[in-house]
Simulated scan of single mutants.
Amino acid sequence: MFTDADAAVLYDLLNPWDPGHQPGDAYYNELITAADSVLDVGCGTGAMLAFARDHGHRGRLVGLDPDTAALDRARRHTGIEWVEGTAAGAAWTAEFELAIMTGHAFQSLISDDDLRASLAAVHTALRPGGRFAFETRHPQARAWEGWNRSDPADVVELTHPTGGPLRVWHEVDSVAGDLVTFHGTTARPDGTVLRTDHATLRFLDAAALDALLAEAGFEIDAHYGDWMRGPVTGASREIIVVARRP
């Protein structure tokens, strides 16, 4: 059996946090370093906050995630508050200078009701002047078209510490409006399937994002189209947002 705990380890293998080599990681690490208190919404296995603590951050660091197995792995890192729960259920009031959602976690907020509740809770958790930073895949890039095992870039082969050699790929099940439903497969090199995980992501454009953020009481500080803080253009694959609680 390939357990939830095994999947959490696999996530770290597939997504190593490395600000020295990954521009997106460097971007967020810079924001965290400059903030005295940080809420990581959808923290997963906690690698981002653990890196910040290990590299000298002395302020308050809090990770929030609904995935029990991921949080169990995050709790290996001490000196950080790990909280099991959803963005919509966050109950802090004016406690953070910075809130962050990385790894395209924002796209897991599917319905308008969940988006509104989540944004309202993040807004409430921030101090006046606090910022909310996140990224979402720009729908114009149609990233989901590369999520299939016939695309060599989507098939990853690696060795898991307990699962041994593995092959991981994705396949799209449906595209309906701005919702893309897909599944990820973890298998042996011979094709024996160990685990299949299903997910739906929402792809919103900048205008829709701005409207939802404004409704929640945010002001937009910046939109970027790349990790070097370039503008959003017709070729951008990302919409990177910084919003502020007035």
Rank of each mutant, 00 (worst) to 15 (best):
residue 209 L to G: 06
residue 190 D to T: 06
residue 166 L to N: 04
residue 228 M to H: 12
residue 234 G to Q: 12
residue 183 H to K: 06
residue 168 V to F: 00
residue 206 A to I: 09
residue 93 T to Q: 11
residue 24 G to P: 05
residue 52 A to N: 08
residue 226 D to Q: 13
residue 33 T to R: 14
residue 238 E to D: 13
residue 34 A to P: 06
residue 132 F to Q: 02
residue 122 V to P: 09
residue 140 Q to K: 14
residue 172 V to M: 13
residue 221 D to T: 13
residue 233 T to V: 12
residue 177 G to Q: 10
residue 187 A to R: 00
residue 56 G to T: 08
residue 161 P to H: 09
residue 148 N to E: 06
residue 117 A to H: 14
residue 244 R to D: 09
residue 222 A to R: 11
residue 204 L to G: 10
residue 14 L to K: 00
residue 63 G to M: 07
residue 87 A to Q: 02
residue 61 L to V: 08
residue 184 G to P: 11
residue 194 L to Y: 12
residue 245 R to Q: 10
residue 114 D to I: 04
residue 12 D to T: 02
residue 125 A to S: 14
residue 228 M to G: 12
residue 178 D to S: 15
residue 184 G to Q: 14
residue 103 G to Q: 08
residue 31 L to I: 04
residue 222 A to T: 08
residue 225 G to L: 11
residue 27 Y to R: 06
residue 127 R to M: 07
residue 232 V to Y: 10
residue 244 R to K: 10
residue 203 F to Y: 15
residue 37 S to N: 07
residue 157 E to I: 01
residue 78 T to G: 06
residue 93 T to N: 11
residue 18 D to I: 01
residue 53 R to V: 13
residue 65 D to P: 01
residue 219 E to C: 15
residue 234 G to N: 14
residue 117 A to W: 09
residue 152 P to T: 04
residue 121 A to N: 11
residue 229 R to F: 04
residue 242 V to H: 01
residue 77 H to R: 02
residue 195 R to H: 00
residue 24 G to K: 01
residue 48 M to G: 01
residue 15 N to K: 03
residue 40 D to L: 05
residue 89 G to F: 13
residue 178 D to C: 13
residue 145 E to T: 06
residue 2 F to H: 02
residue 154 D to N: 13
residue 199 A to P: 06
residue 111 S to N: 12
residue 233 T to A: 07
residue 142 R to T: 13
residue 242 V to Q: 07
residue 163 G to T: 04
residue 154 D to K: 07
residue 94 A to E: 11
residue 220 I to M: 14
residue 47 A to Q: 05
residue 96 F to Y: 05
residue 18 D to W: 02
residue 136 T to P: 07
residue 200 T to M: 01
residue 20 G to N: 07
residue 11 Y to R: 01
residue 173 D to R: 02
residue 93 T to G: 06
residue 62 V to R: 11
residue 125 A to K: 05
residue 23 P to I: 09
residue 78 T to N: 03
residue 159 T to Q: 03
residue 170 H to W: 00
residue 195 R to W: 00
residue 113 D to K: 01
residue 36 D to Q: 15
residue 20 G to Q: 05
residue 14 L to F: 00
residue 232 V to M: 11
residue 3 T to V: 03
residue 102 T to F: 06
residue 118 S to F: 07
residue 13 L to D: 01
residue 11 Y to T: 01
residue 150 S to F: 10
residue 194 L to G: 06
residue 242 V to L: 07
residue 215 E to F: 12
residue 89 G to I: 13
residue 155 V to F: 13
residue 241 V to H: 01
residue 8 A to I: 05
residue 60 R to K: 15
residue 120 A to D: 15
residue 13 L to W: 02
residue 158 L to E: 04
residue 217 G to I: 13
residue 13 L to P: 04
residue 153 A to I: 03
residue 43 C to S: 07
residue 140 Q to W: 11
residue 72 D to L: 13
residue 45 T to E: 00
residue 65 D to K: 01
residue 78 T to D: 08
residue 98 L to P: 04
residue 113 D to N: 04
residue 88 A to S: 14
residue 151 D to K: 11
residue 116 R to M: 07
residue 138 H to M: 12
residue 178 D to F: 09
residue 187 A to F: 03
residue 82 W to V: 02
residue 199 A to S: 12
residue 198 H to L: 12
residue 234 G to M: 07
residue 241 V to E: 10
residue 174 S to V: 04
residue 45 T to W: 00
residue 21 H to R: 13
residue 70 A to H: 10
residue 20 G to Y: 03
residue 191 G to I: 05
residue 195 R to T: 00
residue 245 R to S: 05
